[in-house]
Design a protein around this nucleic acid. Structure first.
Lengths: 149, 149
DNA sequence: TGTTATTATGTGCATATGCACGTTTATACG
DNA sequence: CGTATAAACGTGCATATGCACATAATAACA
């Protein structure tokens, strides 16, 4: 029999997905009061600093471009984000409207409550550690950059 | 100004979602060779031990019952899982077929490669720590059990 | 300048995710 | 036994996710 350190560890991906489901649910219990999803909150936060093109925002959020395209629809429909023409005719600039800024402020309060509740539940130092680990993993696990072009 | 330990930490939920996207992508680069998703692999693995009802499996995977219902379709269509009548007329028993068992064995090899590659990329001890952290978080962050009934 | 490569984006498709609501079948109980 | 409750499951809806493919517009270059 081989030594234990030759066997792969339990599936990290599955655990991660599991925790993400729970965690998302946790945040959204709070965010539901103002009718917004966690991912939408992320978009609002990232746009609050400055307008960006779709691709720029997708890069920041590290999500698929096409996912973002569709995630924007409810935000645009709600009047919080505007899709303006960009520097050249290809680009589209995503802009947070005034109403969007106001709403973001409100949403940030609710998020703050959620994050605080999370830290209360799991322990602040644990959450800090977890954040650091996630951050490290993200830095090491670079995106599957489009097959060596 | 308040001390820093009164401010909430950066959004854990957003980081978690980010990493899950990347991580899923990492695993699925491997799993794609045999045409299966990470979540489907989890289902196969959980069914390989013993047949279970939909609710039992959903509890194990800690995912929404209705999500699982639909996730089963491609597995059933591929002939790997069978939906048999359960103990009483309400229950449906999910059974891994023989072909399903064989496929699971094959898939497990591919998963193993992926997990090993992950450990090579992030460092085995880091992955072990991360697994432990995720596990701990899961144990502390209990499901939003249906509003105190 | 005309052709080619690159950039920025959209759409179709197949899942993943969970809430609200509805249906069927058991079980509890008066 | 009949009715209220609970258990197990399905479906509609709204997003989330990313791949393959298609389009439009700009940049690069012969």
């Amino acid at each position: 029999m081989l030594p234990a350190d030759c066997d792969p560890l339990p599936c990290t991906g599955a655990r991660l997905r599991k925790l993400t489901r729970r965690m998302t649910s946790f945040y959204e219990q709070h965010l539901r009061t103002i009718g917004i999803r966690l991912s939408q909150y992320s978009v609002l936060m990232n746009l609050s600093t400055q307008p960006q093109t779709l691709l720029q925002l997708a890069d920041r959020l590290e999500m698929d471009r096409t996912t973002l395209t569709r995630s924007l629809k409810p935000l645009v429909d709600s009047g919080w984000v505007e899709v303006a023409p960009g520097a050249d005719a290809r680009k589209r600039l995503l802009v947070l409207t005034d109403a969007g800024q106001r709403f973001r402020t409100q949403a940030q309060q609710v998020w703050r409550d959620a994050q605080t509740a999370l830290e209360a539940q799991l322990g602040r130092s644990f959450v800090a550690d977890l954040n650091a680990q996630l951050e490290h993993a993200l830095s090491q696990l670079k995106p599957a950059l489009a097959e060596a072009n």
